Amino acid sequence: MADVPNLPDNPQDDVETYVGLGRQDAEELARARGWSTVRSLPPGAIITMEYVAGRLNFEVKDDTVHRSWSG
């Protein structure tokens, strides 16, 4: 059997703290806090829903984060 790959962990971070921030500020803060991937999406975007450890997702409307979630 193959070894389990070494996957990144999610940073110890409250993802709700990004709601209300501007897109660029939120992305920079998330990277500074250790998120390996930051994805900004428009409301209603069609996205894949596979879980990716270390990824933070933002739903952005009018350049402001309205929702955030990990994976």
Rank of each mutant, 00 (worst) to 15 (best):
P11G: 00
R39C: 01
P43V: 09
L21D: 04
R55Q: 11
G22P: 00
V52G: 02
P43G: 07
P43F: 08
A30K: 08
R67T: 11
V4M: 14
T48D: 14
V19W: 07
R33A: 14
D62A: 15
R39N: 03
H66A: 05
N57D: 05
S36Y: 03
G44V: 00
S36P: 02
P8I: 04
G54S: 09
G54D: 01
W35G: 04
R33K: 14
E59Y: 15
D3V: 06
V60A: 06
A30E: 12
D63F: 09
L29H: 09
R33T: 10
V65N: 02
A32G: 11
V52L: 14
D14Y: 02
H66C: 04
L56Y: 06
Q24D: 06
E27Y: 09
R67M: 13
R67S: 14
D63E: 13
D9T: 11
A32R: 15
E27Q: 11
V38N: 07
A53K: 13
V65E: 02
Y51P: 00
D3I: 03
G22H: 08
T64N: 01
P5A: 05
Y18A: 03
G44Q: 02
E28S: 14
W35V: 07
E59M: 15
R39F: 06
V4Y: 14
T64P: 00
D62S: 15
Y18I: 01
R55L: 08
D25I: 09
N10D: 15
D14F: 08
S68Y: 12
V4C: 10
M49V: 02
W35F: 11
D13Y: 03
Q12E: 08
S40Y: 00
D13A: 13
L29K: 15
N10R: 06
L29V: 06
R55K: 09
A32Y: 05
Q12P: 00
E28N: 12
S70A: 13
L56G: 02
G71E: 10
T17Y: 03
P5H: 01
S70T: 12
E27P: 05
A26V: 01
P8E: 02
T17M: 08
G34Q: 06
D13H: 10
G34L: 03
F58P: 06
M49H: 01
V65D: 04
A45D: 11
T48S: 11
W35D: 03
R55P: 03
T17A: 10
A32K: 15
G71W: 01
L21M: 13
L7M: 05
G22S: 06
D62T: 12
A32I: 08
E16G: 13
L7D: 02
L7H: 01
Q24L: 09
